Simulated assay, not measured.
Amino acid sequence: MDIRPYHLDLARPLETARGTIAEREGFLVRIRYADRSGLGEAAPLPGWTESLDACREALEWAPDLATDEDWGVALGETSAPAARHALSLALSDARAKSDNTPLYRYLGNERLVRRVPVNATVGDGPPQETARRVAEAVDQGFDCVKVKVGARSVDEDAARLRRVREVVGDDVVLRADANAAWDRDEAEQAMDAFDPLDLEYLEQPMDADEVAAHAGLRNGGNEVPIALDESLASRPVADLLAAEAADYLVLKPMALGGPDRARGIARQARQAGVTPVISTTIDGVVARTAAVHVAAAIPEIPACGLATADWLAEDLGPDPAPVADGQIEVPQSKGLGVDLGDE
């Protein structure tokens, strides 16, 4: 197994209620399996996954648990999510290549999927700036935009979203993401303030562990649907589904430990009547393309948070999944479909 560190600066900082993201660091992993080379990426994000040092340690330890033909023990014993993501992705890439099939078909969708709908993401900013950025995204062909909220007061965020509606109208699908910024009173205030704005959902209004509070908020008579994201990094999905705490689950393969786990959780969600949405943690091209394949493996997936390539000032290699008119292209070559030119 080959492990190579990388560092990527963002083209512009992403302002969220949890803080500012200005760079991404991680590791590219290459595994030789059944005479095929598989590519993976580990991009740990503090507060979501293990630290960078813990990720490196887990990756360096993994080969001691595996043989050339059996990496199952390494996958089972690797608890660090980003490290396991890299291992799982690299193995899936190699196996899909051996099967002469694109990764999304290896993950379980036998139908041809050429494109997946995606949303644009707009960070924190004053009302006029927020509306301008949403309008720019709509001009680029997006019909679904997620706006970061929670860094300001609820009233200020409501004013931002009202201004967006005034500028782009009612035909654009809007999502709001609070990144667990509020307590119960603030979340209830936000639900009331956002109710007239026809949001598709409000994402993670409260702390990740507030499962019962999210269930109460969801069933409190307000019509704003609830999506959970951070909660999936700290609580078993079965707990969230049993509590009926969400209408949507936002699944980040990097934070969940791999494309295989994200695909499995998506199945669980659908069986419980909850809608899965696939998103990235602003990863490099390897993990981002893997997330595209996960989304393509889920029938009738709504717009996903995969249009994140332009947040990076530079990438790890050419992008095989460009975005146009609010859709991201799904690579149809064998395996992952990413060529870094160093194999």
Rank of each mutant, 00 (worst) to 15 (best):
D155R: 11
R165F: 04
D171T: 13
T121W: 07
V172G: 01
K146I: 00
A120E: 03
D139R: 14
K148P: 14
P127M: 04
A151L: 15
D155V: 15
V164P: 03
R152G: 07
A131K: 04
C144Y: 00
G141S: 14
V145L: 02
T121Y: 09
G123E: 08
A131T: 03
A120R: 02
V138Y: 05
V168F: 00
V149M: 13
V173I: 03
R162Y: 03
C144N: 00
C144I: 00
V167N: 06
F142L: 08
V173Y: 02
V164W: 01
A159E: 09
A135E: 14
V122D: 06
V147A: 02
K148D: 12
V168G: 02
G125Q: 06
R132G: 13
V154A: 08
D170F: 09
G141H: 14
A131P: 01
V134K: 01
R165Y: 02
V172N: 00
V154W: 05
R160K: 07
F142Q: 06
V167G: 07
A120P: 01
D155A: 15
R133K: 10
R152T: 09
R152V: 09
Q140W: 09
K146N: 01
G141K: 14
V168Y: 00
Q140T: 08
R160S: 09
A151R: 15
G123W: 05
P126E: 10
V172T: 07
A151W: 13
G141Y: 15
D171V: 15
A137N: 01
V134H: 01
E136S: 12
P127N: 05
K146Q: 01
D139Y: 13
D143L: 11
V167S: 05
V122W: 02
V154R: 08
R132M: 10
Q128K: 10
